[in-house]
């Protein structure tokens, strides 16, 4: 049985802030900060947007492209995020209701820093492959947090993408997936705390680079493929710099990662990061294209995927929902005051 992606949908809020505007507030040269991180601007949610609304919009875009799929055939909805609006009460059940997949299904929220979305894809592959569900929905979405003045404030953004995983009319077959996981405390947020803490430089070598290269090399070895066999590659993108460097370390070219590298224009969408990068690739991909994907979540782990776009992409109704390029067009720029309001950083009276 071929298990893979039957449909996908993306969503990114329309608001943006630039690093120079953030730097202006904290007395830092934000422009050079942004240059170092390769981030020109980041997305900011609207005042009435959160992970529920972002995940729902992505999932509705996903369903719009497969008008023949009955949402009642969805057996599972998994929403991966580190900014679920409720501490207790699932995002996934609200999203499932909003795409009319309820009630004969299972749903759960997932969390693994920036890789909970790809973990959901793997879980759906298992359910579909085992015949326990006809379709599974995996969503990665975030309205991520960065402490005011912290380096993360220049990158932490908002967005998400949704994937319908199944075994019929698969537009992109997932040939193989595997993961690499260790207990590495590079980044964390304790229950009830508004902002995460991170290990500074420690987030690089022993965390991001070690996990991504380990998972990626293992996948290449097990599949017996080389970087040159892929048309596109998508790596987790906490900034523009890390994925560019890790691609080079593994032998992928800048051309292979260009299409799926969204961070320079929207920032780090955390759980939405790799799912959105892959969505941007699927917007352009054609039958036969091979895609290499590796996510990363702090704490720490990587999920790697070897994907081949199938002939079914030609009959697939991509035009029924907006492409990532279209979604990010026409942004509205915020100053820091409006940004603080959008992010709920202003204490209001009850």
């Amino acid at each position: 049985m071929d298990v893979g992606i039957v449909s996908y949908g993306a969503y990114i809020p329309r608001f943006r802030i630039k690093p120079e505007e953030i730097g202006r507030i904290w007395g830092v040269d934000g422009k050079s900060m942004g240059k170092g991180l390769m981030i020109n601007q980041k997305s900011v949610p609207g005042c009435d947007e959160d992970v529920v609304t972002i995940a729902t919009e992505a999932a509705r875009n996903m369903m719009a492209r497969v008008p023949d799929v009955d949402p009642k055939d969805i057996g599972a909805v998994y929403v991966g995020s580190e900014s679920h609006p409720y501490a207790v009460k699932p995002t996934a059940s609200i999203v499932a209701e909003a795409i009319e997949a309820t009630p004969d299904m299972t749903a759960v929220d997932m969390e693994f820093a920036c890789k909970a979305g790809t973990a959901g894809m793997q879980a759906c592959m298992g359910l579909v492959g085992a015949g326990m569900a006809k379709y599974g929905v995996a969503i990665g979405a975030d309205t991520s947090q960065g402490a005011p003045g912290d380096a993360l404030e220049y990158s932490a953004s908002a967005g998400g993408a949704a994937y319908l995983i199944g075994s019929k009319n698969v537009i992109a077959k997932i040939n193989k997936t595997l993961s690499f996981t260790t207990d590495t405390p590079d980044f964390w947020r304790r229950e009830g705390q508004p902002y995460p803490l991170h290990g500074g430089r420690f987030t690089g070598e022993p965390a991001y680079f070690k996990h991504i290269t380990s998972a990626a090399k293992k996948l290449l070895a097990e599949v017996g493929s080389k970087p040159q066999d892929y048309k596109y590659a998508v790596f987790h993108q906490p900034n523009g710099k890390f994925p560019t460097r890790v691609a080079g370390m593994l032998g992928f070219t800048p051309e292979q990662i260009e299409t799926g590298l969204l961070t320079p224009n929207i920032g780090n969408t955390y759980s939405g990061s790799v799912p959105l990068g892959l969505a941007a690739v699927l917007d352009k991909a054609q039958a036969g294209d091979r895609i290499f994907v590796t996510s990363y979540g702090s704490g720490a782990g990587s999920d790697a995927f070897d994907i081949t776009v199938t002939d079914a992409i030609t009959g697939y109704k991509r035009e029924n929902a907006p492409t990532v390029d279209k979604i990010i067009a026409n942004p509205v720029y915020l100053d820091y005051g409006l940004y603080a309001k959008h992010k709920g950083k202003i204490i209001m009276s009850e």
């Binding site: 009435d48 947007e49 529920v52 609304t53 909003a98 009850e350």
Partner: peptide, 20 residues
């Protein structure tokens, strides 16, 4: 029509979602 947050019952109550 999209799904958005309409209101919330303070910081600890339910969040109300609906179309806008």
């Amino acid at each position: 029509a999209v799904l958005r947050k309409l209101d919330a019952d303070g910081a600890s109550g339910v969040i109300h979602y609906g179309f806008k």
